[in-house]
């Protein structure tokens, strides 16, 4: 295939899927702006909603691991989020704390009785219940033995009993809600646009290996004169998910999220267009303004101090044996 052929023709956005499976999709995105491709990447990584454990009610933990340590590990376990649209955000739900419409309950109940060997507690040991859709909130299990993720090890007589509440969220709030693992994003592999100024010891050409994608585009030698007006228009994307959502679906969801974002802007601006009356009270606000009373959870989070800063997000909440933010808030 001649690389020049691929760029000819109309200037409509074009995609060429090179490889795909449920975890991974590799494609070339053509004829879109760099800003659009990059916004898609950013949105896929930080604003596609997924499920993750957000509250942990610890009934008993006599293991060697402290409560908050386990709670943090639980939060990071990927959960299936394919039909995430069937789950509501807890903050938008009518219920007081959480309910089956806006959460999934995963229970852990294990006690080691074996004298000789330790008991291993895996993510397959969750009892999943109270959910709107059966495909949402299952622990992602991808190892050949089907065990899932090792959560803790118990010696004889030790016990872990906890109820975990998984909620819908986005990675802007906490990285545990990220749908993706690595997202590869490359353009202009041969650096014809000179967006890169490569550092070198002696010779940049020898010291910086060109990626595989470099073979699909003209090389520096083939470039006769530098084109000052050239813009990148081929993007080599490799999108890998953690297993909660299929990779292609994840990308489609990213597109939808970005479209909704833009639609919000239109609806925020258009009503004023009708009577041609711009908003006059322009005042940049600090993020703290008016947000201080948030912790009461009236509007978002339903009575739990779930969304405090830092790592508490995964185990905050007044119902647990440790009292949420006050005891653990500051040290992380």
């Amino acid at each position: 295939m001649d690389y020049m052929d691929m760029d000819t023709g109309d200037n409509e956005p074009a995609i060429n899927v090179r490889d795909s499976n449920d975890l991974n999709v590799n494609f070339i995105l053509r004829n879109v702006d760099l800003s659009l491709a990059n916004s898609l990447r950013r949105v896929v990584q930080s604003e596609v909603p997924t499920m993750a454990i957000d509250l942990v009610e610890i009934e008993s933990n006599t293991s060697v691991l402290p409560d908050e340590f386990i709670a943090h590990r639980l939060g990071l376990i990927p959960l299936t989020s394919g039909n995430i649209e069937k789950v509501q955000y807890s903050r938008d739900c009518d219920c007081d704390d959480y309910c089956e419409k806006c959460s999934v309950t995963l229970s852990l109940d294990a006690r080691c009785t074996d004298e000789r060997s330790n008991m291993h507690l895996y993510s397959r040991d969750f009892m999943v219940s109270n959910r709107a859709d059966l495909s949402v909130g299952n622990p992602v299990i991808r190892d050949p033995q089907g065990k899932g993720i090792l959560i803790a090890k118990l010696r004889k007589g030790q016990e872990i009993k906890m109820k975990c509440i998984a909620k819908k969220g986005i990675a802007k709030e906490h990285a545990k809600w990220m749908p993706t693992a690595a997202v590869g994003f490359e353009y202009d592999p041969n650096n014809l646009l000179r967006h890169l100024d490569l550092w070198y010891e002696e010779n940049a050409k020898e010291e910086w290996p060109v990626s595989e994608n470099g073979k699909l585009e003209p090389t520096q030698e083939e470039q006769e004169v530098f084109d000052f007006d050239a813009t990148p228009n081929r993007f080599y994307v490799n999108l890998e998910t953690v297993g909660g959502v299929e990779a292609d679906r994840c990308f489609q969801q990213g597109i939808t999220v970005l479209q909704n974002k833009l639609a919000d802007i239109i609806s925020a601006l258009s009503p004023e267009l009708a009577n041609n009356n711009p908003v006059d009270d322009y005042q940049p606000r600090s993020p703290g303004a008016g947000g201080d009373d948030y912790g009461n959870g009236t509007s978002y989070g339903g009575g739990f101090s779930t969304h405090g800063p830092g790592a508490q997000s995964s185990y905050g909440g007044q119902r647990t044996e440790y009292a949420g933010m006050t005891s653990y808030g500051g040290n992380y």
């Binding site: 948030y294 989070g301 969304h307 800063p309």
Partner: peptide, 13 residues
């Protein structure tokens, strides 16, 4: 921590 709450990154007051 005196970092602003995370939800303020995307939820309007």
């Amino acid at each position: 921590s005196n970092a602003p709450p995370r939800h303020e990154l995307f939820l309007l007051d």
